[in-house]
């Protein structure tokens, strides 16, 4: 991918003809245009989420009809879902699953990604391809032998079958972290080695701080994927309600011939809140990490 150590100066074909004045006016127009596009994008992205909220406060009769603005505002829907399902218990389970999985992923994937990105060893290319390959087996099929294995270990009915793998191997995270680490110039690692750092020290002292945005992003995705994971918890904890996660709460509002759309969307909205809060905080750490490496450059 990169050849960072010997990277030549970036090949920029200069255009000395361009007058400076023109660039200033252009710069302002550019600013307006970019911000207009940015705002439009933001609104476009937000619209469907607004509908999640609007549906959540509708009456049962109005929810999911062509009538998209609530005729009456049923704020109590947000309270009632707590009576219909033990959401706090589910919240605890969701947090357990997502936090442990994320922690496990960081412990197992950062060293592996480092070995794949910055260490030289025979079989590394093959190992990298295998990591990618591991994402290509359809999960629907993989679930069959794995469920049987967990069941024979007596661990179905708990969240462990979902958490434990993250402590060992998460192909998506290893792949993503490796790619982020590749963007860090090799010279930093080499400098550390010259200073007598062991590989572990180089990883902890140099790579981890520099790859902070990437690590934060990977952790965020891991957290959010597990947070919204529906089929995993359903398969492994479906029959033990105490172990249900928030994402499974949706199943509470679906009957044989009926779906309570307003309650479903109320739970969806509530489930999104912790994720949004987390994102808002995590994005600060992106920025921090970014300035850190940026200044150092």
């Amino acid at each position: 991918m990169t050849a960072t150590l010997t990277k030549p100066p970036v090949d920029v074909t200069a255009d000395p003809e361009q007058p400076a004045r023109k660039r200033d006016v252009g710069g302002f127009l550019n600013w307006v245009a970019t911000h207009a596009i940015g705002l439009a994008l933001g609104l476009m992205f937000a619209t469907p989420v607004v509908f999640v909220f609007l549906t959540a406060v509708m009456s049962d009769d109005q929810a999911f009809t062509a009538d998209l603005w609530p005729r009456e505002w049923h704020w109590e829907n947000f309270v009632e879902v707590f009576d219909k399902a033990p959401l706090l218990q589910y919240l605890v389970n969701s947090l357990t699953y997502s936090l442990l999985a994320t922690a496990g992923m960081l412990i197992s994937s950062i060293p592996a990604a480092y070995a794949l990105a910055k260490l030289q060893w025979r079989g590394r290319n093959l190992a990298f391809l295998l990591v990618i390959g591991a994402m290509m087996l359809p999960p629907q099929v993989v679930a069959v032998p794995l469920y049987d294995t967990w069941s024979s270990l007596g661990l179905t009915g708990t969240l462990w079958p979902l958490i434990v793998p993250y402590f060992l191997f998460d192909a998506f995270s290893i792949f993503l972290l490796r790619q982020f680490m590749l963007t860090i110039p090799q010279s930093y690692v080499d400098a550390a080695r010259v200073d007598g750092c062991s590989e572990f020290q180089a990883l902890v002292r140099i790579i981890v701080p520099m790859a902070k945005p990437g690590i934060a992003a990977t952790a965020l995705f891991c957290f959010l994927f597990t947070w919204n994971d529906y089929f995993g918890p359903l398969l492994y904890t479906g029959e033990v309600k105490d172990q249900w996660t928030l994402s499974l709460a949706l199943a509470t509002f679906k009957g044989m011939h009926i779906v309570q759309w307003n309650s479903s969307m109320a739970v969806t909205f509530l489930t999104m809140i912790p994720a949004v809060v987390l994102f808002v905080f995590a994005q600060k750490s992106f920025v921090k990490g970014i300035t850190f490496t940026g200044v150092k450059g």
């Binding site: 469920y147 049987d148 033990v240 309600k241």
Partner: peptide
């Protein structure tokens, strides 16, 4: 009584001996 168990879940349970 455990609700919200679909046929896929029943099949997985039977296959692995974790049955109702």
């Amino acid at each position: 009584h455990e609700g919200s168990q679909d046929d896929d879940k029943i099949t997985a349970g039977i296959r692995s001996g974790n049955t109702p």
